[in-house]
Amino acid sequence: MAQSDARDRLVAGAADMLRRRGLNATSVRELAKHSGAPLGSTYHYFPGGKSQLAAEAVRLADALTVRKLTAELPSGPVDGLRAFVAMWRKIVVDSDFEAGCPVLAVSVEDQPADDDEPRRAAAEAFDHWTDLLAGSLCEHGATADAADRTATLIVAAIEGTVAMCRAQRSVRPLDQTAEALEAVVHAVIAVD
């Protein structure tokens, strides 16, 4: 197996474990086992250990979300919102409501102050998503202030709704939130 394939498999496995169990409930040993990689290779590719691997997993989740948003936002912010919702619907349904967002998982857990690389990666991910959404809203008529507020609302609402879907084992909260957010998006892009 090529080096980059093994490394990529570890990162993808870590993202999956984080979205299912969170950062603190996951050990490097479990991450290696889940990825099908020898424990030693984990430390070879990630000398910074669990923190470095978790940050890379968050960056992977960020990149996948950015790719999805970038593909849909040129059609407009409503299409971007719908793509964001569809992505989360697929994740929660395909995982039988056991998986959420690795970015959120890392954001809400305690981390040592001197080793907060995963939290910083999560903050960057949320910034990327809100910046993309806000840019699309501005391009379609929203003021910069309204676009920023609305983009933050979208990311926060969907992230929280994913947690509700997991708890309730239903996509109903996602459907309701998506409908409400679409109304907000239409309101902020309707410029007189």
Rank of each mutant, 00 (worst) to 15 (best):
Val185Cys: 02
Arg149Phe: 10
Glu124Trp: 10
Leu181Asn: 09
Ala54Ile: 03
Leu81Tyr: 09
Gly100Leu: 13
Met87Tyr: 14
Arg120Gly: 09
Ser107Leu: 05
Ser27Pro: 05
Val171Ile: 14
Leu10Pro: 02
Val171His: 06
Glu72Gly: 05
Ser107Lys: 02
Val184Trp: 04
Pro102Cys: 06
Leu69Gln: 06
Gly49Asn: 07
Pro74Gln: 04
Ala163Ser: 12
Gly36Leu: 09
Ser75Met: 10
Ala2Ser: 14
Val188Gln: 06
Asn24Asp: 14
Glu182Tyr: 03
Asp145Phe: 01
Asp115Gly: 09
His128Trp: 11
Val103Leu: 07
Ser27Val: 00
Cys165Asp: 09
Thr177Asp: 04
Asp145Val: 15
Gly48Asp: 07
Ala122Phe: 09
Ala86Pro: 07
Leu73Thr: 07
Arg29Phe: 02
Ala86Thr: 13
Ala6Asp: 03
Lys33Asp: 15
Ala71Lys: 15
Leu53Met: 06
Ile189Thr: 15
Val162Ala: 08
Glu179Trp: 00
Arg20Ile: 08
Asp79Phe: 04
Leu133Phe: 05
Val162Asn: 02
Arg119Val: 14
Cys138Lys: 13
Val28Ser: 08
Ala156Asp: 12
Leu53Phe: 07
Ile91Tyr: 04
Ala2Gln: 14
Asp5Ala: 08
Ala86Phe: 07
Val155Asp: 13
Ile158Pro: 13
Val188Arg: 04
Gln176Ala: 13
Met87Lys: 15
Ala6Arg: 14
Ala63Val: 02
Gly48Ile: 09
Ala142Leu: 09
Leu23Phe: 15
Ala14His: 01
Met17Arg: 11
Ala83Thr: 12
Arg19Cys: 09
Leu137Glu: 00
Gly160Thr: 05
Ile158Phe: 03
Asp5Ser: 07
Gln52Ala: 07
Ala178Arg: 00
Arg166Thr: 11
Val108Pro: 02
Leu174Val: 09
Ile158Ala: 06
Pro47Ala: 10
Ala15Phe: 01
Asp62Thr: 07
Leu69His: 11
Ser95His: 12
His186Ile: 04
Val66Gly: 10
Ser107Tyr: 04
Gly49Glu: 09
Ser170Met: 00
Asp145Ala: 14
Leu104Asn: 06
Asp127Trp: 08
Lys33Met: 05
Thr42Tyr: 06
Asp110Thr: 00
Thr177Phe: 01
Ala134Phe: 00
Leu18Asp: 08
Arg20Asn: 01
Leu104Gln: 10
Arg59Asn: 11
Val66Trp: 04
Thr26Tyr: 01
Gly40Tyr: 13
Val191Phe: 03
Val92Phe: 07
Ala167Gln: 14
Gly76Lys: 02
Tyr43Glu: 04
Gly160Met: 04
Asp94Pro: 12
Thr161Gly: 02
Gln111Asp: 02
Lys90Arg: 15
Arg89Ala: 11
Ala167His: 08
Leu73Lys: 10
Arg149Asp: 12
Ala113Tyr: 11
Arg20Pro: 01
Val85Leu: 08
Ser41Asn: 12
Gly141Gln: 03
Ala167Gly: 10
Val85His: 05
Asp110Ile: 00
Ala99Pro: 04
Arg119Met: 12
Gln168Ile: 01
Arg82Cys: 13
Ala190His: 10
Gln176Val: 14
Gly48Met: 10
Pro102Thr: 10
Asp110Trp: 11
Arg9Tyr: 03
Glu117Tyr: 01
Ala123Ile: 15
Leu18Ala: 04
Val155Ala: 15
Pro102His: 09
Gly40Ile: 06
Asp62Glu: 11
Gly160Tyr: 01
Ser95Leu: 13
Met87Trp: 14
His140Gln: 12
